[in-house]
Design a protein around this nucleic acid. Structure first.
Lengths: 120, 120
DNA sequence: CCCCCCGGTTTCCAAAAGGGAAGCACTTTC
DNA sequence: GAAAGTGCTTCCCTTTTGGAAACCGGGGGG
């Protein structure tokens, strides 16, 4: 007699697992949460602004991640008719639905850091 | 005159960014949320149980991820004195503090899937 | 004329992540 | 004594990810 999955065999758990995979396929990588978090805080930002705001990111990654996020409709890109051509990146309405998740992540990270470096 | 970061220059934002990096350094990878989610649902599970519950994972990844999670005190590993030696993996009290985050992730993933495959 | 700023793309490369298959030690069951 | 189950580790390989640096084109300033 072969054993089968017990916990995750229920439809509700299969859906949860699928959902986690779905979400991670959009949000994985070192920078996506940083970019989204920055755009949620600061309304409209240019490419160079983001490069300055997000410590450690380089032009290649920023450009690639912005394309990914735009493709998934989480952020929007608008080219402005200014004298030196500028681009405005901003969070979309849909991207804003991630703010609860990002808040949870940041909240947990803050508590984690407290637990590691002691209760001062 | 050199421009400086405006949005993330505030201490509160620096802390958030740091927190996001901290959290992701523990939780990154393809399987950690699945393992944690499964252990939150099902109380105590053996290695082979997890292998069956988590669709697609192989022994190598499971073993490695379990070690990572144990090192960070998110799960606990207890070797049992049973006839065929068995190991019980379970979520720690600390690991359980992730359930809100995992719920948010799953919730968002479910809504995302709905938005992609239309409102049926 | 040269350089800097904006907003990127391209190239090259190193490191990390991930997966398959096999092996290993031990025990029970057939 | 052979197979099967439990809990891994090791090896080898491919894919993915990430980063530094160069380059590009247009515009403005000195």
């Amino acid at each position: 007699m072969k054993k089968k999955a017990l916990v995750n065999n229920t439809p509700v758990c299969q859906v949860r697992m699928q959902a986690i995979s779905d979400a991670m396929s959009l949000l994985s990588g070192k920078w996506k949460f940083h970019i989204l978090g920055t755009l949620i805080e600061g309304d409209k930002l240019g490419f160079m602004d983001l490069l300055r705001e997000i410590n450690g990111i380089g032009t290649k990654m920023l450009s690639k991640e912005l394309q990914d996020l735009e493709m998934n409709n989480l952020i929007s890109r608008k080219v402005m008719n200014t004298k030196p051509i500028t681009v405005e990146y901003s969070i979309t309405e849909y991207g804003r639905t991630l703010s609860a998740l990002i808040d949870e992540l940041a909240k947990w990270g803050i508590e984690y850091r407290k637990s590691v470096y002691g209760k001062l």
